[in-house]
Design a protein around this nucleic acid. Structure first.
Lengths: 191, 191
DNA sequence: GGGGTTACCTAAAGAGTATAGGCAGAGAGT
DNA sequence: ACTCTCTGCCTATACTCTTTAGGTAACCCC
């Protein structure tokens, strides 16, 4: 009865790797047990179940992305900062598609509030300091950017823009240009 | 052995209703069989399996949305058309969250090409006729809009903007204003 | 009303989730 | 070094869902 040294942390990172390899919705307690060459029931001492495992992977992914985003944005402003932040999401999704999918898992409100999700919102708000936006337009812009990043990366990852000209790298650069221009010329509310 | 009158179509619409009630990923062949008060194996004469069922629901949702979008956009242009199209997606997602989730299912390329997804792309391109955009900027804009619509609706549905001021209806209107302004002043590529 | 098609059935195997309870290996204290 | 205790991993079990194989009865046509 050799002890493998399971912990919630090791299960979470192994689950994240598994997600990147086979897809987030193929991450099961059974598959993870196989990966550690251990019986399924053994995992239930460390993780409350399938939902708990997925949530932990999601929180890990959110933290990793927030760390990367924090580094990327530091010392930049304006279009530079915008592109740096956007590229973090896009690159992360490409390198870690399973983790990225995990990060899109719907968390219950308390978990979400305690997650790194709030850092993402703060970072997005931070890059808007380079643009002259007052509240509530700043919040509108944060939501627009968040929606666009999420939508673009999801669609690109899902093959939504597949194999049609122009290539998606060009679109990515040009849409970031466009968003930069939009933030610099944010329209006044029509009264 | 009373015959219930199962067909692929009835299973698909019932599956769509089930998705809206309990969530798309809770749509199972078993649950559907229970809903028709029929044994599970009976469904396999009409539907090839779980994946096939989900795909059919996805295609149904795409068609429904394309129909609504087509009606909404007809006879409008400019900001009017933009808002009409955007509202179709948002309203559909709110009224039919399960179907909307289904529509986001990743389809294999052949299925996707034969789906109503292509109508969505054409409709988005159509509303850009009201703005002076040449290729390839038109494609960039189509992708930007698609990404934003998808991202916004997903995040809003997932509670991403939950319960914080300003309310999301206001953000929705103001971001549509912003996108309209962006399309009218699309930036030239920086050489 | 018989005959064929087919709609729905029973039966069964395989995989995932989850819980209850048991044994033995690791660490702590004397 | 020795025991004691804790706990990590185990076996066993029950439930759900998926999928296939093969049977029976209801409907449709002539």
């Amino acid at each position: 009865m050799a002890r493998v040294g399971l912990t919630a942390e090791r299960l979470t990172t192994a689950g994240a790797e598994l997600a990147d390899e086979v897809g987030f919705d193929q991450v099961t307690v059974s598959a993870l047990a196989r990966r550690f060459d251990v019986k399924v029931a053994s995992l239930y001492s460390h993780v409350r179940g399938s939902h708990d495992l997925r949530t932990r992977i999601a929180l890990l992914a959110l933290e990793e992305m927030a760390d990367l985003a924090g580094e990327a944005v530091a010392g930049r402003s304006g279009r530079d900062a915008l592109a740096a932040l956007a590229n973090v999401y896009r690159d992360y999704a490409r390198e870690h598609p399973g983790r990225y999918a995990a990060a899109r898992l719907r968390l219950d409100p308390e978990t979400a509030a305690a997650s790194a999700g709030v850092r993402h919102a703060r970072l997005t708000r931070a890059i808007l300091r380079g643009y002259a936006l007052e509240e509530p337009d700043q919040t509108h812009a944060v939501r627009l950017l968040g929606s666009f990043f999420h939508g673009y990366v999801s669609l690109e990852l899902g093959g939504g823009f597949s194999h049609s000209a122009p290539d998606t790298d060009t679109t990515w650069l040009r849409t970031l240009d466009a968003l930069d221009a939009l933030l610099r010329n944010w329209p006044k509310p029509v009264p």
